[in-house]
């Protein structure tokens, strides 16, 4: 049995410790918001957070998650269900088309803004270049990140 903490909840799974986090989350825990795109850390569709840092879950064994907090797209809204700033910015900019890459995009963007609340264009490019959007919504992703960053900043100033 492997003990996990997923989105703040204690979970246990009985799997080969080499199993990628992606498949444990999707199949054993039946949380399908995290997506499979390439399986070789080249597209970012499977991005989740381990202790707040973005990782490609298709290429990270579940053994690496022991003792750490896994956060998936299902776990980034507020406890009362209010969408996170990033999610709200995504809706405002109408970012998703097919939507398949967007869980991963949002997880990468969330990690970026946690690290750099006001990222420069270069920082956005660097943090997001691992996430492919085949529908090509990169322009809107940039817009949404900037607007979420603005919100983060405004929120900070208010506090």
């Amino acid at each position: 049995m492997i003990k996990l903490n997923v989105n703040g909840q204690a979970r246990e799974v009985d799997v080969d410790p080499a199993t990628p986090i992606l498949w444990v989350v999707r199949e054993n825990l039946e949380m399908t918001g995290t997506k499979f795109g390439c399986g070789i850390a080249m597209c970012g569709a499977c991005t989740v957070h381990l202790d707040g840092k973005p990782v490609r879950s298709c290429s990270t064994p579940i053994s690496r998650a022991e003792g750490k907090a896994i956060t998936t797209i299902e776990g980034i809204a507020e406890d009362d269900g209010t969408l996170s700033k990033v999610q709200q910015a995504w809706i405002e900019a109408q970012v998703p088309q097919c939507g398949y890459c967007q869980s991963g995009q949002i997880m990468s963007a969330t990690a970026l803004l946690q690290k750099d609340p006001n990222p420069s264009d270069e920082q956005i490019d660097a943090a997001m270049a691992g996430n492919v959007c085949r529908c090509g919504m990169y322009g809107r992703i940039r817009t949404a990140i900037k607007s979420a960053a603005g919100n983060t900043q405004a929120a900070k100033e208010e506090a």
């Binding site: 499979f36 998936t72 999610q87 995504w90 970012v95 998703p96 939507g99 949002i106």
Partner: peptide, 21 residues
């Protein structure tokens, strides 16, 4: 008009073929 499918595409609940259970 904002698209009706978009909210489900930012919180992981949109159901794609690969998500069938």
């Amino acid at each position: 008009m904002p698209r009706k499918d978009i909210p489900s595409k930012v919180n992981g609940t949109a159901g794609f073929g690969i998500d069938a259970q």
